[in-house]
Amino acid sequence: MGMEFNKETFRKDFTFKNSAKAIKRFPFPFYEDSYMYSVNMEPHVPGPKGSVFEPMFDVDEHYVAEMQDRAMVLAEDPLRCQSLPHMTLAGWDLLELIMESKARDYPEWFELHKDGHNWHWINRPLGIDQKFTFLDESTLPYGPMEYITRQSQGDFTLQDQRDDNLWIEAGMVTTQADWSLDFDIGMSFHEWHAPVPRAHELGVFDRALKFLLKLQHGAPVRRFNWTLTVDPLLDTSPENYPKWGPMRADISPENVGERMYLRVELQTLHRLPRSNAIAFPIRCYLIRFDDLVTVPKWGRRLHRVLRDIPEDLATYKGFLRNRDSLVKWLSQYDDGAPTSTGWMAD
């Protein structure tokens, strides 16, 4: 495969950039010209070659830079990574799932050698060569979840299952869309979803929880979520709000294309075998509006979605104040032509 990893930043000078290849494989999340919450889950089976669904965990050109950004966030605020004591086993499950998947899907970058519980992990892009004893925390520099998620793009949460509910009790959360692990840790499925408008009334969370409680090992599922962000800032956390909240006032018709980003989360859900917990990786992809409209179908569709989205959703996602400027800017790219269903470019 032989890929160069970008040298780029997600803060201050914001040198983040998508290559032509990354734009082409961007996971555009809208299947049709409108958007409403639904129980949008499908089997997480390998997708078309080159797509972000091809591997279990996508590793792309932003890998190394994203891991550097995560290390900086953690250095400032260690509470972004937390694991309640009974979740350590789930952390090992996650470590095994990620190591096995990456070694299988990207053999040129990652290797995993097992001899009983003596494991040897090689991560070439990050220059890591680690021998350790599986299930023995003292043989790794961090706990198992922290160790592996410092080497994996996207946020991760681990949910324990008991009393017919899921409990968010561990996580590595540094690239989130305005929610806080430190605040949510210990909550149940409906509690941590409390701020979301409409979805409760639509029955989305009741049905999603019922489904997840029966999620099977060996049958992961995936769904999309999305929002909008000003500048390619990964860490839009409540803890960090003073740094990014005011940036939304900088948006003007002149800079929409350059400074507005569609932020897509590819979320997958995996039953973990030893702990019976559920892992929830939340992988964030960013694309600048200027790049997005190079695919005509995406430009047309994003215009229609943002124009017609109910106000409470736009408020919750944090772009109501800029909606008119965004829609106006996007309207240049919408000639009114019909679009095909599905997210693939026409």
Partner: peptide
Amino acid sequence: GYPVNLFSLDQR
């Protein structure tokens, strides 16, 4: 089939 657990230990 794959293992399914409806009787799991409470790790706490």
